[in-house]
């Protein structure tokens, strides 16, 4: 595991979701879902298609207002926020939760650098005296704008995009766009970062670059990460903690190893009858044995 992790106390919880329910019309998309994410860890939220993973993200980041339940976030400073009560932009601005989207949402007609500057909007807005002072050339806007570009440069280096800084974001390859979206989210200086299928559609080498980026985020910035992912190799390799969702309910929660061997999870993924679960476990174990050999 990452070195930063050792210094963290394990009971330092950053996000606590309690009895979260979300109803769309008559459909119960999320049903009494609770879990905790620890500070400095990478928590993965997995589950079959349609299990409600993105809905959970949308509740955490304020795009949906949950029907029931409580989502509390505790910052390093000890400040606590009830996310379900904040409007979406305040969740990013004050509670310091950032996110990416399943279908990438970049400002495609703006350059890569501009994308990262937009992410620092609130900071720059304050420095520009809410535009008025900046327009008149008074105050520290220039200095702050310079710092913003430096911060953007740092994340461009991290995301391996520094050479593309002045190109339109829409011109980047798919993998680069994914990394840019993460870099952009990081420019809001979040304490908690939600990634919605960051590895979807990436080729193996792009996947590897992504894993590197995520690890360095955890190690260098102390940002806790939560991700939705289908690619099990990514999940098992980088996450510290896995939560499994099926039909809006939590069916498993624990370390990657624990979850991997949970019969319920296997059944959910393979769609087998309960009595066959034992057989499945046997097959899985034998396969793993084969891999180790």
């Amino acid at each position: 595991m990452a070195p930063g992790n050792a210094t963290m106390t394990n009971d330092d919880i950053i996000l606590k979701v309690e009895h979260l329910s979300m109803k769309f019309g008559g459909l119960m998309a999320i049903n009494d879902f609770s879990f905790e994410a620890k500070r400095g860890e990478i928590t993965a939220l997995i589950g079959p298609n349609g299990a409600g993973k993105t809905t959970v993200f949308n509740c955490i980041t304020g795009f949906y207002k949950p029907t029931m339940g409580m989502i509390s976030l505790r910052q390093k400073s000890g400040k606590e926020y009830l996310l379900e009560r904040l409007p979406d932009h305040e969740i990013t601005k004050t509670a310091k939760v950032a996110r990416t989207f399943q279908n990438i949402r970049l400002f495609s007609g703006m350059t890569v650098l501009e994308n990262l500057l937009v992410a620092q909007h609130n900071k720059l807005m304050k420095a520009s005296g809410y535009t008025v002072l900046g327009l008149l050339g008074i105050g520290g806007y220039k200095a702050e704008a310079k710092r913003a570009i430096e911060r953007a440069e740092y994340w461009l280096e991290m995301a391996d995009l520094i050479d593309r800084a002045d190109d339109p974001a829409g011109d980047l390859s798919y993998g680069a766009q994914r990394r840019l979206e993460i870099a952009r989210a990081m420019c809001t200086e979040p304490e908690f970062l939600c990634l919605d299928e960051p590895a979807a559609g990436l080729n193996p080498s792009e996947s590897a670059t992504l894993n590197k980026l995520l690890r360095s985020i955890r190690a260098d910035s102390g940002t806790s990460i939560m991700l939705i992912e289908h690619d099990m190799s990514v999940v098992m390799e980088i996450s510290d903690h896995v939560v499994v969702l099926e039909y809006g309910r939590k069916i498993s929660d624990g370390t990657p190893d624990h979850v991997k061997n949970d019969p319920k999870v296997i059944a959910a993924y393979l769609g087998v009858e309960d009595e066959e679960v034992e057989d499945v476990i046997a097959v899985v174990e034998s396969l793993e044995g084969g891999e180790n050999a």
Partner: peptide, 27 residues
Amino acid sequence: RLRRMPIGRAWEALREDEIACRALGIN
């Protein structure tokens, strides 16, 4: 001048993708 200020960039970002703006803490 405004285009080079945060408000101007936020306008253009709004034109490009409103949802992404909200996710970046822009009111």
